[in-house]
Design a binder for these strands. Structure first.
Lengths: 344, 344
DNA sequence: TTGAAAGCGTTACCAC
DNA sequence: GTGGTAACGCTTTCAA
């Protein structure tokens, strides 16, 4: 149809063709209502004919916004982060924004990845920091930011609220399936997300009259391998436990595999409940009972909060995403509960 | 340390402080070697003191590059695409580029997502199109592009080479585990990736003297659900088969689950082999034998090829990523083969 | 080796 | 309502 010229049409081209000024073209692109009917028609015609698209870099330079959001994640593969990313991207795209994604090397310091995003290149950033360092906060100042799963006194946060889900899980293990000694598979010491889940677990145990045994609290780095190793260690030490609550699914899966490897049975000998509800929680056999904490919702919400901040709409400084128990086989329930689930 | 002024330092600020012109600052940022020793030192000092970062939008506008790559994917969640993305991001970051990511709604037409990336906003784009429409190609013209898993006469492509892996898989099923009637679980009709795998499968069956039975070739939409349904249908129709080769892992997993649900056993009654080697292939029980086609490598390679094109380095127009068999339990092998595998 | 100045494509302020 | 025009921050000739 259109002649493909070497360089894309500019506002000046449109202006010339429509017999107006570039200022008018600019107005047409941003708030058409300010223009007279016929002017609108004229410009619209030229825009279509030339297939005009405003140059975003120029628009940005001129002081407008970039229509870009940044997302910084410690890693991009893996079920949790990829779902989180998908949620962010959906919301971002729906709002007409673009998304810039950056990973940080596994244990690389966070700031290494961030400066590149901070260069007036994005209108705001969603950050999932492993640990929040002071220098980082300074970097973030003066630029809309939303933190995910980490709270900070002066920055808005979106995080899961583990309380309801974990309470349901512990109740379920204890009351429905007779667990009495529950081991807790926690994350690294500094990890706030883990801490909140551990606390919810301890709280509920306490309110059920079961003391949380410190020797049954072990820590790993969130990986399946860590879960296996933690279970192995506990078993070798001869610790007595009849259930495990893990602060994420991957460690829970590792635990299940290790327990079964030693000849014990899940859920008959040890009941297991994870946290997250990653897809393989329901694919694995026995299917993993877990506290559903939908990362896609987390990501979508974070993006929505950020977008609201950017556009100046009032936003709560802390948003909590509710979680809930999904009882499957590893806690002792039959699989038929899940009959209706579909692949997404 | 540094005083945080409202707006970030500009090249003019640096120039003033170092007692040079902005041109010199620009040269310093791009090719320092052109400057005299002492000038370099002076500018370097000012840059550090002011914490100067060039404004990328301005740099772009001025005719340089954006240092951004675009990535268009049909979906962002799920094991395959998230690994692909991770590979792209790694290579992109290592090269000092940023990454812009766009998804397309599940069955949304591709061009909807693309124009936004085409607006002189990225230096090049990696595209994973569901199906390649003619209009799309036009959009792509005049802008470096690399296609993933789809070939096109005039555009460079990076794709898996299924031949070696699939040959190994079929041989393994037939020669090592005595399969004689192998069903093929294929993807949608238009999908090139599926077609190449089907062909590799048929070729190898032929060379082993086993005719490929058309009634054992079924198609689904790549999902676990589809795999279940295909297995269900085949079983209901009373088709006789003793092995399945699926063109991706998710359908293979669905097939395994459905087969086991009906009381048949994997691998004793039906051997199953997938394609991709997604993480849960090794987590599930029985562990899935599959043709490893590492998506991270695919992504990384695509990014490298694109980067080479952008910087004018010569690049092959078609790159093939080798694949290979990973024999696990569903094909009839014991699990001990996998002892050494770790979580990544 | 360095500086001056002309863009790059928009936006936004100020007149008309 | 609309047009002129000065930024925005950088790169890149062209001279010196």
């Amino acid at each position: 149809m259109t002649l493909i010229s070497k360089s894309p049409a500019t506002a000046a081209d449109v202006a010339r063709m429509a017999g107006v000024s570039t200022a008018t073209v600019s107005r047409f692109m941003n708030s058409p209502d300010l223009l007279a009917r016929d002017t609108q028609q004229a410009v619209l015609g030229a825009v279509k004919q030339l297939n005009y698209r405003p140059n975003l870099a120029a628009r940005n330079l001129a002081g407008g916004s970039t229509n870009c959001l940044g997302l910084v994640l410690p890693e991009l593969g893996g079920p949790f982060f990829s779902e989180l990313l998908a949620g962010v991207e959906e919301a971002t795209r729906e709002a007409g924004y673009h998304l810039l994604v950056a990973g940080t090397e596994p244990h690389e310091a966070f700031p290494l990845a961030f400066p590149s995003l901070n260069q007036q290149f994005v209108d705001g950033t969603i950050v999932f920091p492993d640990t929040l360092s002071p220098g980082m906060v300074e970097n973030l100042a003066g630029h809309p930011v939303v933190l995910v799963e980490v709270s900070h006194p002066s920055l808005p946060t979106v995080a899961f609220d583990p309380s309801v889900g974990v309470r349901e899980a512990i109740r379920h293990l204890v009351c429905d399936h007779g667990a009495e000694r529950i081991a807790c598979f926690a994350g690294p010491v500094g990890a706030e997300a883990s801490r909140r889940r551990e606390e919810a677990c301890a709280d509920e145990l306490r309110s059920l009259g079961l003391a949380a045994d410190p020797s049954l609290l072990v820590r790993g780095d969130w990986s399946e391998l860590a879960g296996r190793q933690m279970a192995e260690r506990l078993l070798e030490q001869g610790r007595c436990f009849d259930a495990i609550f893990s602060v994420n699914d991957e460690m829970a899966i590792g635990a299940v595999r290790e327990i079964e490897r030693t000849g014990l049975r899940v859920p008959d000998d040890v009941r297991v409940c994870g946290f997250d509800d990653i897809p393989q929680a329901r694919w694995m056999r026995p299917a993993l009972s877990t506290v559903a904490a939908p990362p896609r919702t987390l990501g979508r919400t974070a993006a929505e909060v950020l977008l609201a901040r950017i556009t100046g709409r009032p936003t709560p400084s802390d948003v909590q995403i509710p979680t809930f128990l999904v009882a499957r086989e590893t806690s002792g329930c039959g699989q038929e509960l899940e009959r209706e689930e579909n692949t997404s």
